Amino acid sequence: MANLTQAYELQELDIRTGYRFLFVSVGSKTILKAVRYTYARTFEDKKVYNLGFGDYDIKTGTIVDQAKSNNGDAYKVLQTVLSTIPYFFEKNPDAMVLVQGSDSDPAFAERCRKTCNKHCFTTCKRFRQRIKVYRSYVEKNFGDLSISFWFLGGFLSINRDVEIQRYVPGREYDAILFFRK
């Protein structure tokens, strides 16, 4: 992965339902975060794993991927999440990773409006924000990343399936898939 010089220290847990990484976000608060790779489906003979992350709820043992921490360390958190990718591919060299934003579901905007302090009237400003961050990282580093990875872009269909095509820089996608060359 490109430019991952500043990342939090990770604790890796190998669990049956996927690989989980924990780290502590230190900013205005101290927040336990988690990254998890969960098997989603098979695509062209490759196991596809969804990369999910968010605040880790110790009581329930779950990742709260809708959390908006605003902890002042978003760049370092993103670097930490991305730093798990080489570890994942070490253990799963033939796998494919799927990245989607938890805020890309059309129902997200309606849920957001109930607690939003931005007073969005026609278009939710937080809708699809996370996939835009991932896409921006890929766009800025596409040349370097393409040396090691193949990229595909995905569009959500009406029935929530992901329709996949070759990744074209500059195109807006609902999901990004990638795998090692």
Rank of each mutant, 00 (worst) to 15 (best):
M1F: 05
A2K: 10
N3W: 05
L4H: 02
T5M: 09
Q6Y: 09
Q11S: 12
Q11V: 12
D14I: 13
I15W: 06
Y19I: 14
L22R: 04
V24C: 09
S25K: 01
G27N: 01
G27V: 01
K29D: 15
T30I: 08
T30A: 07
I31P: 00
K33H: 10
V35N: 00
R36P: 00
R36D: 12
Y37F: 07
Y37H: 01
A40R: 10
R41S: 13
T42H: 11
F43D: 13
D45N: 14
K46M: 10
V48Y: 05
V48H: 04
N50S: 13
N50F: 10
N50C: 08
F53Q: 08
Y56G: 04
D57C: 06
I58V: 15
I58G: 05
K59R: 10
K59N: 13
T60E: 11
T60V: 06
T60C: 07
G61Y: 08
Q66G: 13
Q66Y: 14
K68R: 14
S69C: 09
S69I: 07
N70F: 11
G72M: 06
G72K: 05
D73H: 00
A74H: 06
Y75V: 15
Q79V: 06
L82F: 13
I85S: 07
I85H: 06
P86F: 07
F89A: 04
E90W: 02
K91I: 04
A95H: 02
M96N: 01
L98V: 02
V99H: 00
Q100P: 04
G101H: 00
G101S: 01
S102P: 07
D103L: 04
D105T: 00
P106T: 03
A109S: 10
A109M: 03
E110P: 03
R111H: 12
R113G: 03
K114P: 03
T115S: 14
T115V: 14
C116A: 08
C116L: 07
C120I: 00
F121N: 11
F121D: 11
T123V: 09
C124F: 03
C124R: 02
R126P: 00
F127C: 04
F127M: 09
R128N: 15
R130D: 12
Y134H: 10
Y134A: 10
R135N: 14
S136M: 08
Y137N: 03
Y137I: 02
K140N: 14
D144Q: 11
D144E: 15
L145M: 14
S146D: 08
S146G: 08
G154N: 01
I158V: 08
E163Q: 12
I164W: 05
R166I: 10
V168L: 12
G170M: 01
Y173L: 04
D174G: 01
A175I: 01
I176A: 05
F179C: 08
F179Y: 15
